[in-house]
């Protein structure tokens, strides 16, 4: 793929929220629509359903743009949670309403100055943190998070005990958090 200049997705979402800017939406659609579909296919959704959910997710981006709070999350993380909620609904897990505060990232609670929040918005920092994990930890987190397998399913797939899967996820996530916090302190 031809490399493109980095786009300011926060500005695009703001244009959608403030002036229902269709051109801005088309740009966001062209970048994220196919990636949402890829994510869903990778996590086991049949291609036809993934197509439908990706379109639905982009429609939600349009409708909820005003609820996006750039001080709390990257656009990518926000769109990720939208896709995750729709998939959860489609599977009738019925928990998407509980994630409702994700869409606004908890505007009912005051924003907190938090190294994790600011660090987590920096995609490069998060990627570097992921690379710092050992392969077992990264694999367990990937399977839990991106293939949406339960921990029991991961345990079965990898042929390791459930406790081992949980420990890999736990220590992997703690390591990620420590990495991001360290990076943020370094910059301060």
């Amino acid at each position: 793929m031809v490399s493109q200049p980095p786009r300011d997705f926060r500005a695009l979402i703001a244009c959608i929220a403030q002036s229902q800017d269709r051109d801005a939406f088309v740009e966001v659609f062209n970048f994220y629509g196919p990636r949402i579909k890829a994510l869903l296919v990778r996590s086991g959704t049949p291609p036809a359903a993934a197509e439908e959910l990706a379109q639905e997710a982009m429609l939600t981006v349009w409708r909820k743009a005003a609820a996006y709070d750039p001080t709390r999350a990257s656009v990518a993380a926000w769109i990720f949670t939208i896709a995750r909620n729709l998939r959860s609904d489609a599977l009738r897990r019925g928990s998407s309403a509980l994630h409702a505060f994700d869409a606004t990232f908890g505007t009912e609670a005051p924003a907190q100055p938090d190294a994790i929040l600011s660090g987590a918005q920096d995609g490069a920092c998060v990627r570097a943190a992921m690379r710092s994990l050992n392969p077992d930890q990264a694999q367990a987190i990937e399977m839990a998070f991106f293939q949406e397998q339960t921990h029991s399913q991961i345990s079965h797939a990898l042929g390791v005990p459930l406790g081992t899967v949980k420990a890999r996820i736990r220590f992997g996530m703690m390591k990620l958090r420590a990495f991001v916090e360290r990076e943020m302190r370094g910059q301060a």
Partner: peptide, 15 residues
């Protein structure tokens, strides 16, 4: 703060 990190990881992978 912790769940936001998990979401950020999701966002980075999506990108």
């Amino acid at each position: 703060a912790w769940t936001h990190l998990a979401q950020a990881v999701g966002g980075a992978v999506l990108d």
